[in-house]
């Protein structure tokens, strides 16, 4: 029986910028379709890993292959779609012109542009120029680009950052649809988002592979939120405080709406609710 060619093969990859190493000896291979969440604290090398896999950075050592072809070859790059934190929309263009530009470069058609405008609900934005859009709208347009043409490997660098929860969820659903028969690497610094979307994790720490396996292997951390009220609240006297925030330990972000309901039910006047601690900080200690 022959072993299937991995969709992504990274073997002893050393990579970085201008000769300075950021990744050091990263090895893993991905064969089955699905969402693989690339986790790591800021500066761990997540973006560098995705850029190296995308063939944008040439590894100083080791090899990267996409479906058995070196990632440096154009044929490999044609099998990948990729987004970074940058929107990549040429300045001065209208939204639909920008999508048309990328579709045309990739040999796509007007039909692809229309389909994507419908898929990402961009109809109202289509004739607007990019600077007129909010940060979230810009991100939506940027994400729309990856749905223009079908590829076999998708490298998505924090695709839901700056998006409101509703749009973020819609995009995660689209990514999940993609992952039915394609490999998606999805970088995030949010463990709870990772749990929602992926079943496997590629954890990077200090430029090295810290973990490659099932996401359940990551020990569950408590999720702490801080609630800031308009004034002192007698009903919250027993709660721990950090600065102006009353702290609550939850199992995950999905419990936040329940907490808000409880508090407002008790007459607490909420001014702000925020995440007090990034579970990944604990994970990578």
């Amino acid at each position: 029986m022959t072993t299937p060619t991995p969709s992504i093969l990274a073997e002893g990859v050393v990579s970085g910028y201008y000769g300075k190493k950021v990744l050091d000896g990263v090895s893993f291979s991905v064969t089955e379709p699905g969402v693989y969440v690339v986790l790591g604290p800021n500066g761990a090398g997540k973006t560098t890993l995705l850029r190296t896999l995308a063939g944008i950075l040439k590894p100083y050592a080791g090899r990267v292959e996409i479906n058995g072809i070196s990632s440096q070859a154009k044929e490999a790059r044609r099998q990948i779609d990729y987004i970074t934190h940058l929107d990549g929309i040429p300045e001065g263009m209208k939204v639909e012109d920008a999508l048309r530009f990328y579709a045309n470069v990739e040999g796509g058609t007007e039909e692809d542009v229309k389909r994507v405008v419908g898929l990402l609900d961009l109809t109202e934005l289509a004739r607007m120029r990019f600077p007129q859009l909010s940060q979230g709208q810009k991100k939506r347009v940027s994400v729309a680009r990856i749905f223009l043409r079908e590829k076999s490997v998708y490298l998505l660098d924090e695709p839901t950052s700056n998006l409101d929860p509703k749009v973020a969820r819609e995009i995660r659903e689209l990514v999940l649809q993609l992952s039915r028969d394609k490999v998606v690497l999805y970088s995030s610094h949010n463990l709870f988002e990772a749990r929602e979307i992926g079943s496997r994790v590629i954890a990077v720490k200090g430029g090295k592979l810290a973990l490659f396996g099932k996401i359940d292997e990551i020990k569950t951390q408590t999720y702490t939120v801080g609630v800031r009220t308009l004034g002192p609240e007698a009903s919250l006297e027993s709660a721990t405080m950090e600065g102006d925030y009353y702290l609550f330990e939850l199992r995950g972000p999905e419990e936040v709406p329940g907490l808000i309901n409880d508090l407002t039910g008790k007459g607490v006047k909420i001014r702000e609710v925020r995440e007090m601690q990034n579970p990944l900080e604990e994970l990578f200690k």
């Binding site: 154009k74 044609r78 530009f101 990739e106 076999s152 649809q177």
Partner: peptide, 18 residues
């Protein structure tokens, strides 16, 4: 598939005219 109506871009050449 639901998401794509055009065939995969993998085999196609880049169109640099645009």
């Amino acid at each position: 598939g639901m998401l794509f109506t055009s065939p995969s871009a993998e085999a196609g050449a880049l169109n640099l005219g645009p």
